[in-house]
Amino acid sequence: MSTMRGALRRPSVVAQVGAVLVVVLLLLVVVRLPWAGDLGMHAATVQRLRHDLVDPGNPLVDADTPSPYYSPWMLVLGCVARVTGLSVFVVLRIGAVAALGLFVSGVWRYVRTLSVHPAAPALSLLCLVFLWGTSLFTWSGFLGLNSLALTVSYPSVFALGLAFHFWAWLAGAVRAGSARGWGVWVGLGVLWAVILLCHQFSGVVASLGALATVIAARVGGAVWWRLGVGALVGVGVLWVWPYYDFFALVGRG
């Protein structure tokens, strides 16, 4: 029996060490913070919010127009920059560390709703990062190592981390059914809206994952009512977000 336990434990340790090494590598990337892609746009967004939280103007052009770059996460980072006086790139590094922690903990939480195997979270993280075939994807919202290394300070990583926590929370709620109070469903609706506001592409992925979670759980009518209330709350948050019109993005290319 002890030999069997040791054999089962060794793959778990290897997977966990591999996952830790990946996280350490991404933390080193945060220190380097490569100037690539949309980093300048996100830096400009934080800088605009640092100077004016109420009417920051468009971060890409000299115009007083709304912008979808003004997400809840960027607003938080703008407040951090405004209160602390830290440079924009230091604030982006702080945000990257927070988003990376949210992403890793979110994967762990969600995988735990699917498997109790000790190696499952670490193996899932490694699969998410490495199993992308031979073509490089370097774009916000993709979880390949190359993409994460370039976008770790972007709102998309924060949104993906929230998405995994959202799925884990939703999975627990639908399993408990009507035993969960209304506050849980309202909170899920708000969280869903925040993900959509932070990064629309990741929000679509989070929505599809939520739909799959609900369908797989085969919930009853009482739960569907609660889900409907949560969805209405989420739509309300999207509707009242003051920095840009979320629904105006629906018809855009």
Rank of each mutant, 00 (worst) to 15 (best):
A19D: 09
I215K: 08
R218M: 08
R82K: 14
G230L: 01
H117S: 11
A36T: 14
R82V: 11
L53E: 05
V229A: 15
L128H: 06
W182A: 14
A231Q: 09
R252S: 15
G183C: 05
R48E: 02
G236P: 06
W73C: 00
C79T: 14
V20Q: 04
T134C: 07
T151L: 04
A173S: 10
T213H: 01
A63S: 07
S67G: 04
S105G: 08
F142R: 07
S178C: 12
S124F: 11
F246D: 00
R109L: 10
V194A: 10
F246I: 01
S87N: 11
R5I: 13
S67Q: 04
R226Q: 13
V23F: 13
V83M: 13
V104Q: 08
A210P: 03
Y70E: 01
G40I: 01
R218L: 09
V88Y: 00
V223P: 10
V111F: 10
Y243E: 02
Y110W: 15
V29G: 09
I195N: 08
Y110K: 00
I215T: 11
T65Q: 15
C79A: 15
V111R: 14
P66S: 13
S115C: 08
L26N: 05
T3G: 05
H199L: 07
V97R: 07
V152F: 05
V80S: 01
G234F: 00
G203C: 06
S140T: 13
V20I: 15
W35K: 12
